[in-house]
Amino acid sequence: MSKAFRFWGLVPAWALMILTLIVPILIVAGVSVAERGAYGGFNWAFDLSSYRQILYTVGWTDELEFDPKYVLIIGRTLLFAGGATLISLLLALPVAYYISQQSSRLKTILLYLVTLPFWVSMIVRVYAWLIILGNDGLLERIYRIFGGADISGFLFTPGAMITGMVYSYIPLMILPVYASVEKIDPALIEASHDLYGGRWTALKRVILPLAAPGLTAGSILVFVPCLGTVLEPMLLGGGKQLMMGTLIQTQFGGARNWPFGAAIAMVLLILVVLTLLLNARRAGRQMEATL
């Protein structure tokens, strides 16, 4: 029974994986090597020009030339996503640690509060930042109370965009970090103090290494959605610079170039997979090192 069950029992899981993950990815990959339709859509003909377009485009002078604009957009996306991840990490660690030190009743409440924003639509949450960061908004008023000079607004800046990204995804960082910090035996920290380790040493040699799995998991959970984010660049960043998410959206919309949109989506996917692979390798090496 067990062998048959092992096979048939996993069929639903496989079916789900194939239908909802593998088939859609294959469709995107297929579209990315298809020929673009005249008014959007695509024709089934093999055509690699979408991938060529990432590096080479026909310039204003009618010549095919190396054009770094898409590489620039991809680089910018990596930079902003990385920045947002780093800020989330720096903010989440103390928060998670603080929560882990509370009574179990308070812990539940605090964790519930961390996840609370997820119950509200993402668009509504981003709009809330429009009110906070906008002209004569909350932040500007507070700034003025403390005697700040006249400023031209926080909204529609890269800073506003990163703020929005950090805000949107930080719960995904706090929760895994909390999960690993919570398991740290306080005796280990005491032991480090007993051995004349200061607070910094305790953090660096005890807490951080033990929290590493949570930090990595959190970083991936934040970095990956940040790579594809669309709302924050458009609403908070003012749409003045394209990111990969908005670039893909433009290709399926105004540009009517589905294969190119799909090709950029594939690049995005490859970046995500690379991130995960690199991390898996590092984790593997760490395992070996500890063994």
Binding site: T57, K69, Y70, L72, I73, G239, K240, Q241, L242, L247, T250, G254, A255, R256, N257
Partner: peptide, 11 residues
């Protein structure tokens, strides 16, 4: 060309 104007503008 419209798309090129736009992506070059927002690159």
């Amino acid at each position: 060309l419209v798309t090129k104007v736009w992506t070059d503008l927002l690159q």
